[in-house]
Amino acid sequence: MIDAHQHFWNYQPERDTWITDDMSQIQTDFYPNESQVVFESNGIQGCIAVQADSSEEETLFLLALAEQNDFIKGVVGWTDLQNDHLESRLEYFSQFEKCVGFRHVVQGEKDPLFFQRPNFIQGVKQLAAFDYTYDILIYPHQLKESVAFAQKLPDQKLILDHLAKPPYKSKDLTNWKKDIQGYRSLDHVSAKISGLVTEADWANWTKDEIKETIDVALEVFGPKRLLFGSDYPVVLVASTLEKWLEVFHESVASLSACEQADIKLNNCLAFYQVEL
């Protein structure tokens, strides 16, 4: 297996304000040399490191870790995709072999029309020339806009993080189920089965509610467009790594061995163009 979504950081309270006091389990440093043993004991041989802070310093931090740790197979970083000089920044990052893509925290944007910004669309379009991917990080209410955005970028490899964070706590998945259907025909968009238990009630989530959304993802994206992700260490606020893996494995158990291998390994290698 390969983990398509993992984080590393040198915890800084003044910077990492999103890690609130009720997430005390992760108010500490996380480095690959410490987590690699845990992952390998659970059958995971490598990961894609994804940005958690919106800065180029973060991108360089992850790339430095990747150079020092073969466990990190690729880095999804951050750069200002609305920058007038974006091409030169992408050229700069192209010197790093393990830089595979970029992400913008659109879920944090208050502008409901952010996905329609011409300079943002143009910025993401420039990624294809460098063979970079783009990770879509949104909340459920942004799904419709994200689908329209993806339709404008047919030549760009896109991936939806955390299945757009299903609203488990609301007990009503109706709109999420309807809106995510917009991705069904967009073959250039994949999705990560990741970050789900942290969207549910941390203390009382159930396997059935998680499996329900994974079933929807299988219906919409199919086994060829889905990737496994741990969202470690964020997952620790609601689960152990082992518990999340158990739920994931049970949720895909009815698939063929080849389909499971695609979700657990092959799709990630192909999407991010990395090797174990």
Rank of each mutant, 00 (worst) to 15 (best):
L62W: 02
V76C: 08
L90A: 07
P167V: 07
V220A: 07
D215C: 03
V247S: 09
D131P: 01
F30D: 09
D201L: 05
L90N: 04
T240E: 05
A270C: 10
L269G: 04
F221C: 09
A148K: 15
Y168D: 03
W18R: 04
V234Y: 10
L63G: 01
I180H: 06
K110L: 14
F61E: 06
K144Q: 14
S94W: 07
N175P: 00
L160T: 01
N267R: 02
E87N: 07
L173P: 10
D22A: 05
V106A: 09
E145P: 01
A150T: 05
N175Q: 15
D172T: 10
D262S: 14
L60W: 05
Q151D: 08
T17K: 14
H7D: 01
K243D: 15
F71L: 06
Q12G: 02
Y183N: 08
D53I: 14
Q156I: 13
L226W: 03
Q82I: 01
D111C: 01
L113K: 14
W9P: 00
V75Q: 00
K169E: 10
D208M: 10
P118M: 06
E56M: 12
R89P: 00
F149Q: 09
N175K: 14
C99G: 03
A164C: 05
L265V: 02
M23H: 03
F228A: 08
C47M: 13
E275D: 13
I26G: 09
Q45E: 13
L63Q: 02
S55G: 06
G195K: 10
D84I: 04
Q181Y: 12
A150I: 07
D22M: 05
S194P: 09
A253D: 11
K98C: 10
D3E: 05
S256V: 04
T174K: 14
P154C: 07
P140D: 02
